[in-house]
Nucleic acid binder design. Structure first.
Length: 423
RNA sequence: GGAGAGAUGGCAGAGCGGUCUAAUGCGGCGGUCUUGAAAACCGUUGACCCAAAAGGUCCGGGGGUUCGAAUCCCUCUCUCUCCGCCA
């Protein structure tokens, strides 16, 4: 959520930058400023009327103490009159505040100046690439066939138990999940991130805090009996740890990592790209989140990108890093880098991580603040990224490392998996 | 699920219809003293709206009673104790 004061002081700049994200409803900006003006006017009316009521009520107390009954009765009538004036003002004020809030949350975050223009994924910019594409054997298979061949993921039984898109990992497949999670978490904690294991369901306030509500309501599984949402990523519970917290400046940066299963309805996506592990409703992911001083956030973003890149390098997979163009960025992000790995049998790039700086867009909703050296309250900046999402990593490990004698594992995983070959 | 108790400033904790502009203690910050530190003493110490002053709002959330609510009533949420159920 953008800050009204910022919009008020930078109206044209806000519109220009929203245009980079191909935002269409520019009328909302003017609407917000109009509502804000109205709010201010009503607030002043409310305050001055309330002030009169307060002072008169105090006088009543004093008159009663002196035993001046008639005078106090007159004052009571006066207050009653003022209160009848106050009620409609107060109702109007809450209505305007609510409307302002509802309009404000419809505005996406402003893209940073570093965001390249563009409308489609084709206009994203490849900033770096690494690793080598493997030479696959002649009879190489896509991962969904390898999975069957080695019997390590059973989609049919997963569908029987729950529904399609809920994979059932089995044997070495299950063990590989466990090994990857352990490895990723160790890699992150070694870099100074504190490990958390968060609740997998969250309440409305939490889902609202990171921007899932109201924007992506339909993408989350919802439990109506208790009004809980299944988390689409651990970013949601982890960032909300600090909701409504005023942190000390010297506690920054806050660095957190968490493993969790992620639940996504993926409503509207079907057909291509959903085969095998490419797109599923439940998957495992290790996430990194940072809360930082606003002056440091872009520096930290680069750190996080290089952290994920190092991790990816140890997996020995071919990858590339994209800087997303305005049209491909998410609602809440100011700058996003996507990581893709090359799935050799599918001949396709698959997204395995997305690292973003949200600046104060999330923290303004969550009121995560610190007091700077001048004693002024400031919002911290929040960033997060996957490090990493498992299914597509697994798909690539299977496809890229297939040999006649089974599937080899990168050196970094030998210790965690307990073997140098998957199967 | 049942019964009871509770939720107050960074923390502990008093207040139970008007002077609450929330006592007191601890902690934090500044100062005096000191070579320095500790101790002692003195002062200071939250957030939000408003460009700011004035003013207003905030004693878990929401609603009500009253001229006036931290204080009374209703309701929700959470915490604790006991019982029940349970991995």
């Amino acid at each position: 959520m953008l800050q009204v004061a910022f919009i008020r002081n930078n109206k044209e700049e806000v519109k220009q930058r929203l245009a980079v994200k191909n935002f269409a409803e520019m009328g909302l900006v003017d609407e917000i400023l109009r509502l804000d003006e109205e709010r201010k006017k009503l607030q002043q009316e409310f305050d001055s009327t309330q002030a009169k009521i307060n002072s008169t009520s105090k006088e009543i107390g004093q008159l009663m103490a002196k035993g001046q009954k008639d005078d106090s009765e007159n004052k009571k009538l006066e207050v009653a009159l003022l209160k009848s004036l106050l009620q409609p003002i107060s109702d109007k004020l809450s209505a305007v505040e609510k409307q302002l809030q509802e309009t404000l949350v419809k505005l996406p975050n402003l893209p940073s100046e570093k965001v390249p223009p563009g409308k489609t994924p084709a206009e994203n910019i490849v900033v770096r690439a690494g690793g080598n594409e493997p030479k696959l054997p002649a009879n190489s298979l896509p991962h969904w066939d390898l999975i069957k061949k080695y019997d390590i993921v059973d989609f049919e039984t997963g569908a029987k138990i729950t529904g399609s898109g809920f994979p059932l990992y089995k044997g070495k497949g299950a063990k590989l999940q466990r090994a990857l999670i352990q490895y990723f978490l160790d890699f992150n904690t070694a870099a100074g991130y504190t490990e958390y294991l968060p609740p997998l369901m969250v309440n409305e306030a939490t889902a609202y805090g990171t921007g899932q509500l109201p924007d992506k309501e339909g993408q989350m599984y919802f439990m109506p009996a208790d009004n809980f949402y299944m988390i689409p990523t651990s970013e949601v519970p982890v960032t909300n740890i600090y909701r409504d917290v005023i942190v000390k400046e010297d506690e920054l940066p806050v660095r957190m990592t968490a493993y969790s299963p992620c639940f996504r309805r993926e409503a509207g996506s079907f057909g291509k790209d959903v085969r095998g592990l490419n797109r599923v409703h439940q998957f495992d992911k290790v996430e990194i989140v940072q809360l930082v001083h606003p002056e440091k956030s872009y520096e930290v973003l680069e750190d996080m990108v290089s952290h994920v890149e190092k991790l990816l390098n140890t997996l020995e997979l071919p990858y590339r890093i994209l800087k997303l163009c305005g049209g491909d960025m998410s609602f809440a992000s100011a700058l996003t880098y996507d990581f893709e790995v090359f799935s050799a049998a599918q001949q396709k790039w698959l997204e395995v991580s997305s690292v973003s700086n949200f600046e104060s867009f999330q923290t303004n909703r969550m009121k995560i603040r610190f007091k700077d050296s001048n004693g002024k309250m400031q919002l911290v900046h929040s960033l997060n990224g996957s490090s990493l999402a498992l299914p597509r990593i697994v798909a690539c490990l299977l496809e890229n490392n297939q040999t006649e004698n089974g599937i080899e594992l990168p050196l970094a995983l030998h210790k965690y998996f307990g073997d140098n070959k998957l199967c």
